[in-house]
Amino acid sequence: MWWKITSVVLVLYTIIAGFLVPLKSGIERVEPNVAQTGEQVSIRFFGYNTFFTRPTETPVRVWLYYNDQYALRAQAIRLINDTILEATFQMPTNLPEEKSFVLLNALVDHPTAGASLLPIALTLRQTKVSEGSLDSAWTIHPVDNLHLQKGFSFPYQNILYETIRNTYFHVPMWFVLLFLLAASVWYSIKYLQQPEADYDRCAATYAEVGILFGLLGLTSGMVWANYTWGKPWSNDIKQLMTAVALLIYFAYFILRGSFSDPEKSARLAAVYNIFAFASLLPLLYILPRMFDSLHPGATGNPAFGTQDLDNTMRAVFYPAIIGWTLLGFWIADLRLRLQRLKDKALGVD
């Protein structure tokens, strides 16, 4: 009983916190995003969830910075509204490195609302070959004394924006799928050890609910991929893996259905379940070597866990996994009871 209540509480918490907690403020883009050395240019910073006009004691500071050493600070700032500000820069006559252009990061530091950053926001081009020593504008105002964003909020990620909340719904589906399929295989092994009809029922039901969660994970992932990767299906390795897992279990149900003798059906389905699940494991090892993944944490993509999954997200993500897993087992439990009653009514048991 307690675990059913826990699952409801955790899933409700996931939904409420997942949807209501705001995102941290960030910078969406800057306009123009190309500038030439030596010119004076006004650049508009478009913020996301920012509060540029919130009153402060010290002024808002804006930088375009290259690295820890070289940064350009805006000479004048005009706050247009909460999400747009215009900063005027006097671009130096030379670049910090011998290149034809450098990529600069945009940084806005608001004393009360906190600092927000956009990596690789602007391209600064070298117009003519620079002469003389490095312009002091690069080093005179280093990035310092940044103000942290306070409060409970999720990280802001360009391209993800609000869809970062899908982490609490899409990712746990994969966990639940694995747990349920593992439970299904466990009952298949038990059936082979001791042929009782109930073990077979358990194996089939856990596989069914596992497939349900696999489909949910696939759909929620495709919606997310459509938004962030541009198309719903991009032959990503994790998509392929899920597709293969679903194929295996569809085949499992076809096999179960193709016998008239229930004992035979249960025994052979259990054998296939173990065989197929065990051959899924090399797939986990082999496929990633062949296909690049767009998922975080693969082939050079930043992983969840370094900076993306910060403590605020963990506070929702881990309860979400537990909550969805318990919910999955509850659904399986209900189906199982229903199936037992049906079999009893039919006199099969």
Partner: peptide
């Protein structure tokens, strides 16, 4: 060997083995 116990043999072998032989 599994499929031989069922009736529609060839189809069953194909669908049961594709996911297994994919890697």
């Amino acid at each position: 060997a599994i499929a031989a116990k069922a009736d529609q043999n060839a189809t069953l072998v194909a669908i049961l083995s594709f996911p297994v032989v994919l890697p």
